[in-house]
Amino acid sequence: MKLGLHISSFTWPEGAPRLGAVLGEVAAAADEAGFERISVMDHLWQIGVIGPPEQEMLEAYTTLGFLAAHTRRAKLLTLVTGVVYREPGLLAKAVTTLDVLSGGRAMLGIGAAWNEEESLGLGLPFPPTAERFERLEEALQICRRMFDGDETAYEGRHYRLGRLLNSPPPLARPRIPILIGGGGEKKTLLFVAKYGDACNLFGGPDVQHKLEVLQRHCAAVGRDYAEIEKTVLYNFDLGEKGERVGEIIDDLRRLAGLGFTVAHGSLRNAWDLDQYEIFSNELIPAAEAL
């Protein structure tokens, strides 16, 4: 199993004046420790499960470009981009730009969006659920075409593009991987089977059932279930002095047994660089052996 660092909070000591410098140090430390990927949320306000909306939040793709300049190996992505936040042609271009400038390390993480309060506050579109999923499917089709170099005009219900030119093309081969976030059984997991290279699920008690649903969708559309990367959101609670490392390894072993190969994990006080030695020396080698 491989580990990813998911940076979901930027409310760090010294505040905004040192935020860029500290984030660069965090990215470099995570990259050097051996994290296989680094992700950020695609939100403009902090989300309620982490803190009040007034807490510091950075725009995702600007941040990923910054992270690209401070890392050498880790893949870079959002968990996950809300489809209605950007027109799909622009989104594909942004992710392709990230891929080219990072040397082929970009992934597209995408979902149907959920934060209505944030959208209304900043004037972003937030159509009803059914329309968001329609837009998600069209955006997936458009992004795949642009990543593959197909310039054919696209005519959908919500999006109409005259020429899907994407120059320079991505460096990633065979294409920039598309990760679809969410566990919705009727639409989201069906889209994973039809369009996704990876899924991202919450590791709750129903996670095995979600994988079984995905497997059924793959069978229905003729997709090889084994070729889809299974990733899980996780919380790396190391304890005060790293005393919970053994528990985390046991939990990762359980998830690996279900078929997950990547754990995207949040880390309390991600700015505390001493924690990355625990990952480098203990957690990452143990996870890779699972």
Rank of each mutant, 00 (worst) to 15 (best):
R244D: 02
R86D: 02
T81I: 01
P285L: 01
C218R: 14
L190V: 03
V232R: 05
Y234S: 04
P127R: 09
A220L: 15
I248V: 06
G15H: 11
F147A: 09
E243R: 04
F126A: 10
G123M: 09
R157S: 10
A74N: 02
Y234T: 02
P169R: 14
R105P: 01
L5T: 04
W45Y: 14
R173V: 08
V83N: 01
G121K: 10
A29S: 13
L76N: 00
K2H: 11
E151F: 06
L23M: 11
I47F: 15
A112E: 09
R105G: 01
A287T: 05
G51D: 06
L77D: 02
I47G: 07
Q141I: 02
T129F: 12
P169T: 06
L171V: 07
L165N: 11
I278V: 15
V213I: 14
R268A: 11
F133V: 01
V207K: 15
E54I: 05
A270M: 09
L3T: 00
A270Y: 14
K194P: 01
H43F: 09
I7W: 13
A94G: 00
R223E: 08
A287D: 10
L90C: 01
L233P: 04
A92C: 00
G196S: 11
P169A: 10
A28Q: 13
A106R: 12
E240S: 10
R157T: 11
L90M: 08
L165Q: 09
R173E: 13
G257Q: 05
